[in-house]
Nucleic acid binder design. Structure first.
Lengths: 200, 200
DNA sequence: CGAAACCGATTGACTGGTCAGTCAGCCAGC
DNA sequence: GCTGGCTGACTGACCAGTCAATCGGTTTCG
């Protein structure tokens, strides 16, 4: 009854290996053979589980991005203050990086910021994140918690852009990345943005 | 005496064509032949003026980035308030986009955000921009114009990240891009960040 | 003054190397 | 002995960069 549960899930193995290799060499300079080698699997097996090299990255992105979208929407649905909601979003993203820096590096570098390739393919999903954040801002404005002379979309882009730039900074060692830095980042980003958004 | 002044500067012609093609198709999917065609020039001539396809993009980036660095440093050197300095920086970047959106698109998409390829090559130059902005913030803190509990590097990354995200939004039609939007952006970005940086 | 050598700009056919994706079959477990 | 997860050699397409040849203008020299 317990089904066949293969001792090792080769598909997962390939995805995990892909994260490591993409993070190390970047999507464009990794050969499919590199992924197979890293996964300890034959070249052809990658094509048994995935239609193409692109599909491997697409899968990695979608898996994690849907978690992000869920987290943002959950924050939005909570009873917290608008500011606390934004802090939750920042916290989730920062923690995602802390928990799995390689995966986040791949997602940001190869998708989110790769506007001419995967970024374009996934634009609708990426946009959904911007929109959800904008909704939090708009609701905050409606509730009087945020000032109304700033377009919610503008605010959303600034907020998300600031966070992503911080991640980029960590990824490329432009700024220090210790546990305290991560913790500070959550509050500081929110503080920076909110103290500019909240009335007076 | 008036020298030979060639009726057309083919090198410039190639660079300008490259901007258009890179903006349209992205660096990776433009063939050197596309650049030559767009420039109305023979394939081989591209290699007469440039060592490689990469060098064409490097040249485009360096030409403009040095202007940006100069603008930031000029702002920093001025007698203005720290807030006005930041607004000048934001203004310069926004105007760069307004003046030549294709070039800025190429620079942001293919270099600044292409962390695994050209972004890495030009990291030192890019960093210089972050550092100069951070210096403006640090000076502002020293002068008591900004509060001191926010790391200048952090602030710099957030500020720059917010601006770049806005440009990305314009580039990919995620947010409206009219003249008023550009004008608003300059003030709003600065306002958002500074009202969070200035004491109480 | 004209011819001839010279030289950088320009041309585009060609090559060498690189991979993504295919496919004909192998073999372990049922 | 069958089935499908698994293997990896092979191929077809693609393209950056090369290079031998041509062109058009300038200088040199008889």
């Amino acid at each position: 009854m317990a089904s066949k549960a293969p001792p090792v899930d080769k598909r997962r193995q390939i995805l995990d290996a892909a994260v490591r290799v993409f993070a190390r060499q970047g999507f464009h300079s990794t050969r499919v053979a590199d992924i197979a080698d890293e996964a300890g699997v034959a070249y052809g097996l990658v094509y048994h589980y995935f239609k193409s090299k692109d599909e491997v990255l697409n899968e990695l992105f979608s898996e994690r991005w849907s978690l992000l979208l869920a987290a943002i929407e959950e924050a939005d649905g909570s009873a917290e203050s608008p500011r606390a909601k934004l802090e939750a979003v920042a916290g989730f993203i920062v923690d995602s990086y802390r928990y799995d820096p390689e995966l986040m590096k791949v997602i940001i570098v190869e998708v989110t910021r790769a506007a001419n390739s995967f970024g374009r393919t996934h634009l609708p999903e990426i946009r959904r994140a911007y929109d959800s954040i904008a909704k939090i801002v708009a609701d905050g404005q409606a509730a009087g918690a945020f000032r109304r002379d700033i377009d919610p979309t503008f605010a959303s882009m600034s907020f998300y852009g600031a966070i992503e730039q911080l991640l980029s900074g960590w990824i490329f060692d432009v700024i220090p990345a210790s546990d305290t830095d991560f913790e500070q980042a959550k509050t500081l980003v929110t503080a920076t943005i909110c103290d500019g958004l909240e009335p007076r």
